[in-house]
Design a protein around this nucleic acid. Structure first.
Lengths: 163, 163
DNA sequence: GCTGGATAGTTTAGGTCTAAAGCAATTGGA
DNA sequence: TCCAATTGCTTTAGACCTAAACTATCCAGC
């Protein structure tokens, strides 16, 4: 009999006196639980989520991307992309070429090995996520997806209102 | 007229060929959007989310907590708690006392200043979260909260099944 | 042509987090 | 009693991330 433990929420109980905060803490606990689980499984293969994200973006852009484009695609800072790409290049998964059009820019592309590595990781990643949401039927997923869409719109509006 | 920009999702389009992954990416983008927004606003007050989390746990436990209890409450590693608490102590927001019962353990408590600081931050934090979900009505929030409950259970089950 | 902003990337300083190794104190048996 | 495993915590090495300062290049308008 496999033991099923509930995912705990940060500050269980505390801070949660407002419905909005309760919602936020539950959202956060779900996201962190999945992220840590995936992170842990990537680590078991000597990979990390951040590097996987870079490879995924590049796999989709065969023509290559420059650093700024990567930064925007991954929603992380410029400096962070520099670090990740330089390490991936050292490991032989990507190649950095100067841009012919703009001498400030460089173009990052997957190497054959990078593409092969990514393919293996992506398949596993798919399966892991599938496994984590396996207990929700199609309708429940649809409801959640739609509800998150509402939240997304609300966040965008809320961010536009600066304090 | 305030401009409302949509929250972007990582890998917009790519990787999202499976409904489970699409759901995960949307969940992640919502969580990250809120987290970064809150992080940014904390930074504007010279605070950080991680330190706030520690203060929140301690505020709830007037009698004090030892390091292990903090680690479990915040869902972070032991070593991380050590770092955070030592810096908070240096800043005069918490006090570390040796445990009378167990000489290995120490008991962490808020100082008066820590309690006051936390109160201010907590009120602001509440308001920020309220603002971000303001565009969802009570029913929409309830649906999302419930749907996240389903997901939470599914994750717990999925994690029990090791690959 | 020049020149003063924009733009592309890198560097730096610093905060967050983890896993794993290590230290000291405690505790449960033999 | 004693000693081996456990427990509480710290340290270390390393990955991730950001904001801000910096360098180099581009480009638009004079």
């Amino acid at each position: 009999m496999t033991e099923v433990l509930a995912i705990r929420e940060k500050h269980d109980g505390a801070l949660a006196d407002r419905s909005s905060v309760r919602l936020w803490l539950r959202l956060l606990s779900c996201a962190m639980a999945i992220e840590k689980d995936v992170q842990r499984r990537f680590a078991g293969r000597g990979a990390t989520l951040a590097r996987f994200d870079v490879l995924a973006a590049l796999d989709r852009h065969e023509e290559g991307m420059n650093m700024g484009a990567l930064s925007r695609a991954l929603l992380v800072s410029n400096g962070n992309v520099t670090q990740l790409v330089q390490k991936l290049a050292k490991d032989g998964l990507v190649r950095i070429a100067p841009s012919p059009a703009d001498r400030r820019a460089s173009i990052v592309r997957l190497t054959a090995r990078g593409r092969a590595d990514f393919a293996g990781l992506a398949a596993a990643h798919h399966d892991w996520i599938d496994g984590l949401v396996a207990d929700m039927d199609g309708e429940a997923r649809e409801i959640l997806y739609h509800a998150l869409g509402d939240l997304k719109r609300s966040i965008a509006k809320g961010q536009a209102v600066e304090p």
